[in-house]
Deep mutational scan, measured.
Amino acid sequence: MATGGRRGAAAAPLLVAVAALLLGAAGHLYPGEVCPGMDIRNNLTRLHELENCSVIEGHLQILLMFKTRPEDFRDLSFPKLIMITDYLLLFRVYGLESLKDLFPNLTVIRGSRLFFNYALVIFEMVHLKELGLYNLMNITRGSVRIEKNNELCYLATIDWSRILDSVEDNYIVLNKDDNEECGDICPGTAKGKTNCPATVINGQFVERCWTHSHCQKVCPTICKSHGCTAEGLCCHSECLGNCSQPDDPTKCVACRNFYLDGRCVETCPPPYYHFQDWRCVNFSFCQDLHHKCKNSRRQGCHQYVIHNNKCIPECPSGYTMNSSNLLCTPCLGPCPKVCHLLEGEKTIDSVTSAQELRGCTVINGSLIINIRGGNNLAAELEANLGLIEEISGYLKIRRSYALVSLSFFRKLRLIRGETLEIGNYSFYALDNQNLRQLWDWSKHNLTITQGKLFFHYNPKLCLSEIHKMEEVSGTKGRQERNDIALKTNGDQASCENELLKFSYIRTSFDKI
C-alpha cells in the first residue's frame, strides 16, 4: 500500500482533458527560462521544448504516446526543470519506465491550478516501474492521483506527508504495488545497510526511497516546507523545498512566496507586481503582455491589467481597466465587458449561442446573426445582446428569417469595421425574408467608422429604411451602385405612401 494514499474509496472516473512563447529569463536562482504550460502528445517531438525550461508557468501534460519505446527515452533528460506552477499529468506514455532521468531536479509542483483537485496525476502508464522524482520536495496545493499503472512499484516507500501538507485526498490505487509483488529495495538494503531515512506512518517504520538508488530526502521537522541542505541544516524561511546553503534567500532552489532578481522575498516591493503567484514583474512586463494579447485571437491570451499590486489576466467583477495605466478602477454604474472572439468572429444561430455573449459591452471581433427560429426570440436576444455598444469588426445579418427588427441591439452605437466582410463591408444584410426595420432612427444613433453597407434580398425592408441608415451611420456616399439592390429590397412591402385627393359631386333626387 502506498504510504499516505487512500484505498478502496469510491472515486469519480478520471477524465483526461485534452506555445513556446518565453516569458522571460528567471535569473540567477533558476538555471534556465520560464516556459508556458505545455500539452505534449502523440510523439516526442515537442518534448524537446523543455530543454531550457527551469519553470513551467502553467501545467505540463505528457500523454497518448503509443509508439514510443524505452530506448526512445534513454537520452532524454531535462535537468534544468525545477518547478511547475500548476500540475504534472502523465497518461498512456508507452515505453517510459521512470522519471528519474527525465526530470531529475523537479523540486516543486505548486498546484496553482489543479487537474480535478490533483497536482500530480500518473494514470495508465503501462510501462512505468517507478516514479523516480527523487528531488520532489513540495506539492504546495492539491493532491496526488496514481492509478492503474500495472508495473509501478516504489510507492509504499514514499512518505507523501513530507511532500504535501495533507495526504487525506491522495488516491493511489490499482498499481502493481497493490499486489505486494514489488519487493522494493532501498539503497544499501541488499548489503544489509540502512542508507535512507525511515519514518513512521500508520504504525509502520519504513525506509523512504524513490528507487533502488535514490533515497527520499527527509528534512528535520523544524525546517517545515522550506527544505534543508545535504547536511540537514534548514533553508531560509522564504525558500521552498530545498537550498544549497542554509538561511540564505539567494540560495533557495525555489521560493515559498515570490522570486525577485535572484532572491526569494515575502512580497513584491514597489515598483514590482505579483505575477502568477510566484514571481515579481515590473510595469513594462505587464504592459507588454497586455499589448501582445490586445489584437491576438490565441486562446488563453489575456490583456493583463494591474489590481491590488498584482498583474492579473482581467479586472475583477465591479472594476474596469483604465487604459492609460492598466489599473483596475471601480465602475460607475454597470461595468464594461470586452469579449474577445477566439477566431475573430462568432455566429449567433440560437439563443444558446447568444447567451455566451451575455453582459458583453464591447465585441472584439465580428458578429454573424443567422437565426431561423426560436421561442420568445426578441426578448431572449435583447437579454443577451442588448448591452453590446461596440463591435470592432463587422455585423452580418444573414438568412435570419425569424427577425423582424434589429432593435434587440438596443445599445449598439459603434461598428468600427477594423475587419470587413469580403474585404469591403462593415454591415452586411443578406436574404432576411421578414426583416422590416433596422432601428427606430428617431431614437437610435449608430456610427460606422469604416467599410460599406450591403443589402440584398431583404424583400420587406424598404429602401427608405436603408437610406436612413446611410445618413445616420455616416456611410452615405461610400456605397457603390450594386451594394444596395434596388429590386430585391422592399419588393414585397408597401414602401411608397402617396396622399390621394378626392373630389365629389353631391346629387339628390331633384338636383344634379
Results as ranks from 00 to 15, higher is better:
L60S: 00
N117Y: 05
T45M: 08
Q287V: 05
P249H: 11
S161A: 15
Q287P: 06
M83I: 14
H236W: 01
R263G: 13
I56Y: 00
V144C: 04
V126A: 15
D248V: 03
F73K: 04
D277H: 14
Q303A: 06
E207H: 14
I222Y: 07
D75K: 04
K176L: 03
N138L: 10
W278P: 01
F103D: 00
M38V: 06
M321P: 14
K129E: 14
R46P: 06
F283P: 09
L233R: 14
G183S: 12
F91E: 02
V126T: 11
E97V: 12
R110L: 09
F103V: 02
R141V: 07
P70A: 08
I56A: 00
E57W: 03
W160H: 01
N42W: 08
T199V: 11
T229R: 06
L120I: 10
I222A: 14
Q303I: 11
N309L: 04
N52R: 08
N257I: 01
D86G: 04
L64P: 04
I62F: 06
K67G: 03
N308E: 13
S77L: 09
N195M: 10
C268L: 01
T157S: 08
N242G: 07
T107I: 15
H302I: 08
L29H: 12
T199I: 07
D288R: 15
C228I: 03
M125R: 00
L260T: 06
N309C: 03
L136H: 01
N202R: 05
K217H: 07
A119Y: 00
V121Q: 01
S237C: 09
S112K: 13
C335W: 09
G333C: 04
N150W: 06
N308A: 07
N105K: 05
P70Y: 05
S166M: 15
M137D: 02
C186Y: 02
D288L: 13
F115G: 00
V121W: 04
L164A: 10
S54A: 05
T320P: 02
D184R: 14
I163S: 01
I185F: 03
L174F: 05
G203N: 13
D75E: 12
I139N: 01
L131V: 10
F285Q: 09
T45I: 09
P330D: 14
G32E: 09
F115S: 07
S112W: 10
T140P: 07
C182Q: 13
S161L: 11
L88Q: 00
L136T: 03
R263S: 07
C286T: 13
S244T: 04
M137A: 07
L240S: 05
V167M: 01
R141C: 03
G188M: 15
I222E: 14
E49I: 11
S317M: 10
I163Q: 03
T211R: 12
N150G: 13
P336Q: 04
G188R: 05
T107W: 05
S98A: 07
R69I: 11
V108F: 02
L60Y: 00
Q299I: 09
E33A: 15
C182I: 05
G132V: 01
Y319P: 01
S143L: 09
Y94C: 12
A190L: 10
V265S: 05
K310A: 10
G95Q: 11
H290S: 07
Y304A: 03
G192K: 15
V34N: 04
T199E: 05
T194L: 14
P270N: 12
C182G: 04
P313V: 04
A190M: 04
C286N: 01
I172P: 13
G192M: 14
Y118K: 06
L29R: 11
I139E: 01
N170K: 08
N105D: 05
C186A: 11
R41V: 08
L289M: 15
C239D: 00
H214M: 14
N170A: 10
T107C: 07
K67I: 12
H236P: 02
G58M: 00
P31R: 02
L327P: 00
G203F: 07
S225M: 06
H307K: 05
N257V: 01
P330T: 14
N195Q: 09
E180T: 07
A119I: 00
D39Q: 13
F275W: 10
P79N: 10
P316H: 03
C53V: 02
N175P: 13
N150V: 08
P336I: 14
L240T: 15
Y304S: 03
N295W: 05
V93P: 00
C228S: 03
E238L: 04
R41G: 06
P249M: 06
R297L: 06
Y273H: 09
P316V: 04
H226T: 13
N117Q: 08
D247K: 07
G300N: 06
H302T: 13
P316K: 03
K67P: 07
G203P: 06
G37R: 03
I56C: 02
Q299P: 12
I222F: 09
P79A: 06
K67E: 15
T45F: 04
N43Y: 06
C328F: 03
E151L: 11
N242W: 12
R145C: 09
R263W: 15
C53P: 00
L60F: 02
K193A: 04
P104D: 00
G203V: 07
I84A: 00
